[in-house]
Amino acid sequence: MKLRSRLLVHFCLLLAAVAYLGPFLWMISTSLKKESQAVQMPPQWIPHPLELHNYARVFNSPAFDMSLYARNTLIIALLAALGSVLSSSLVAYSLAKMQWRGRNVVFGIALASMMIPFPVLMVPLYRIFRQVGWIGTNLPLWLPAFFGVPFFIFLLRQFYLTIPKELSEAAVMDGCTHFGIWWRIMLPLTRPALAVVGLFSFMAAWNNFLGPLVYLTHQSTFTLPLALQFYQSRSGGTTYNLLMAASVIVITPILILFFLAQKTFVRGIATTGLK
């Protein structure tokens, strides 16, 4: 490529990088400032003095029991990920590799249901969960994942369809049951796809806001996003240095996860778009 156009691309990307990274840097910078410096005009990028104490204040604030919320969120996210992986792969296997009447109808329902956003079902779901006494517990936020997530069923079915029939037929010859094929052949073969499902499911549960807002009633059960919003509405939205410190705390675990699993992420998103 010509040097001129290469420079142009570099310039555009540099501009974009500033726009996309800038807010993060500003958040970190504010989180390390004294309140007086945070509201100073003209704004300063370098915190002086370095107020690490902000983080301690957030951690020790009675309205923001960080470790508790982190634990709450982690439990929900892990269970949701586990449930999605197990149930969706089992259902996807049935839809892709087993012969039974009605499976196309079931697959059709799963496809169509991807067009129905959560807000549409919010009221009746609340009613159902209230009936069984789950409002105020974290059950509504992860248990449904154990009953198959349409998007992941769709994704995994595509993967299973690419696995040659001969493989499972040979296994049947050797006296392997369907459960054995799924557990010993399919799951190991589709490990990358399962990682994608687990990761996406974990992320969605970790970042979910509307769900916890609807179902969780006690502060001791709050998740991080809900707690962050609660912290903001309590503090009246004025102490931005503390709010930014709290935001940094909420964001950091997910960023660490991203950098650990970057390849899985990118492959996963790419796959979702093409199938």
């Binding site: 996309y20 993060f24 962050l228 935001s247």
Partner: peptide, 22 residues
């Protein structure tokens, strides 16, 4: 560059909203 442009998607919406409010 790819990582930088993807980063905001990872952040919970609540945190994004707070950053932008500020």
């Amino acid at each position: 560059y790819r990582t930088i442009i993807f980063l905001p998607c990872l952040v919970p919406m609540v945190a994004s909203a707070l950053i932008w409010q500020w």
